[in-house]
Amino acid sequence: MAATHDFIEPRVIARLKNLNLHARLPMLGSVTGLHRSPHRGSSLEFAEYRKYVPGDDTRRLDWRAYGRSDRFYIKEFEADTNLRLCLIVDTSGSMNYARGGISKLQFARQLAGTLAYLAAWQGDAIGLYCAGQTFQRQITPKRSAAHLRVILDSLASATATGETGLVAALHEAAERIRQRALVVVFSDLFVDPQELSSAFQHLRFRKHDVVVFHLLEQAEIQFDFDRPMRFVDLEGGPAVLADPSLVATEYRQAIEGYLRDLQTIVRDANVDYQRLDLEQHYGDVLAKFLLARMPKRR
């Protein structure tokens, strides 16, 4: 497979190719893959012994154990399967925010595209949800090279406009993805925390492994403007004229409170939460993310 979009950088792919994408939770796949399955299988990874019951395949009896204990045991091994990687990209207007560098949407494209590429490389199925008010796209997970191109093309053509439809998209993904999947969300999460909490709980209820890449620019946290500004709402709302010297303190208080709430929500929902700064390089972000997900050596 070759990268054909500008948000896929071969240099980054080459760097990350040796790092597999792992799910934190067992996945239910259709073919053999790199991911742990809830079922026993035929991998080399020993799982456990269990007592023989009539009907079991006698080839799986552990005769050495019988010799030692005079009892019949079946030796079971982990099953390795593939996963469904479901990428949910927020395409609301606020994802167009950029201050000097790339926009949040572009950053999300780089992350999602590279993850999709890596997942396809390791044989996983890939799906895509674009969550915006005016741009809604759903691509169910499939694992084929052609499907990867569809995914990448969709990412490339995604535009950020209007209000966010993230919460609805999360609920819909929770309902539509039939089996366990790795759901990765790319968003600035400018939504009601309570609604977001509900959406995360819904996904977790459906046993999905949820990852959130929270895209925030430092200026959105620090609000370090030095003169009155006219703030034009990227999601189409009315513009607001504000003097940062008057409202900076209150702004920071508000966003700090929001982030504290968000921390609680992701902790309660056991969501893998990654807050990103747009000034970071996406390759570094993904490397760190993938390394953190590597299974521990036994």
């Binding site: 500004m229 006219r230 034009v232 004229l241």
Partner: peptide
């Protein structure tokens, strides 16, 4: 003042 596009409204 100058205008700036802003998301965290």
């Amino acid at each position: 003042h100058r205008s700036i596009s802003w998301g965290a409204m």
